[in-house]
Write a protein that binds this DNA or RNA. Structure first.
Length: 268
DNA sequence: CACAGTGTTATCTG
DNA sequence: TCAGATAACACTGT
């Protein structure tokens, strides 16, 4: 599930419910999700501190843990989360509710708990001691897809011979787009996902930019890519699905290494 | 039982 | 260097 709109939703969960609360206890329910730290180190770093906020970077979520009262000579630790394909972040307003079987980490705070839940464990949890360590964990990324400028998109796609599908899903080209979102954007922009990304005409690139922005803003508002009437996402998992726009049968291919649903009649 | 899947990375091949 | 294919991670639903 988690692409940019979902992670943006998780960011809002933290901002609206957890921000400003003191972390009483860190419960590591599955230490195999800890990628660069241990349960002991995570507890030592976070317990007693305050949830200072939440920031999204592409599909990453950063939760800085604010000062515990001391002078804080070494800076504030930052919890770094990636949700893979099945991760979620929940706010549970009552403490000590029975855990969900896929709950991997609980941050127990005043008045509730923040729960990192993940079925497949394809990504995980990092601890950064400062902003520099955050950069090392996340690594290089293209410009964030939300608020992307037309000039940024042009620069990102310039010279690429790869397919649009592969290019848009590459976090080093543009950060935040996943499989579902990319299919929806290319379908709404009427662009063939196999087209070389660097060879779009001016008006095509402009249409792609406008569509990307519109699909993203609508999805962020919903906290997911919505299965809206008239959207590809509404029908993409149906068996003999047909294009919501032209009614002709949709095609399923493997493009850029991922399942791609598109309309060979509309998308050129 | 086989296999694909809303993600990412390493490795191999052309 | 670039791009595509494949495997690996771990688990569930079809």
């Amino acid at each position: 599930m988690p692409e940019l709109p979902d992670v943006e939703g998780f960011r809002r969960v933290v901002a609206e419910h957890a921000r400003g609360r003191r972390i009483h206890e860190v419960r590591v329910r599955d230490a195999s999700l800890l990628r660069n730290t241990t349960a002991t180190a995570l507890r030592r770093a976070l317990e007693g501190r305050t949830v200072a906020g939440a920031e999204r970077r592409g599909k990453w979520l950063l939760i800085p843990a604010g000062g515990s009262g001391g002078s804080g000579g070494s800076g504030e630790p930052i919890l770094v989360l990636h949700f893979g394909m099945t991760g979620e972040l929940h706010w549970v307003p009552t403490r000590d509710q029975p855990p969900h079987p896929h709950d991997r980490l609980h941050l127990v705070a005043d008045g509730g708990e923040l729960r990192y839940r993940d079925q497949r464990k394809l990504q995980g949890i990092w601890l950064a001691g400062d902003r520099g360590q955050v950069e090392r964990v996340i690594g290089p990324e293209g410009p964030d897809a939300l608020g992307l400028r037309a000039a940024d998109l042009e620069r990102a796609l310039h010279g690429l011979r790869r397919s649009l599908k592969a290019a848009l899903m590459d976090q080093n080209v543009v950060a935040g787009l996943g499989n579902l979102l990319t299919d929806e954007i290319l379908w709404q922009a009427r662009l063939d996902p196999r087209r070389p990304a660097g060879q779009l005409g001016r008006s095509e690139r402009s249409a792609l930019h406008r569509t990307l922005g519109r699909v993203l803003r609508t999805s962020v508002r919903a906290g997911r890519v919505p299965a809206r009437e008239g959207w590809l996402t509404a029908v993409r998992d149906e068996k003999g699905a047909s294009c919501p726009r032209c009614g002709r049968p949709l095609r399923r291919d493997r493009i850029g290494g991922r399942r791609t649903v598109w309309c060979p009649s509309c998308q050129r």
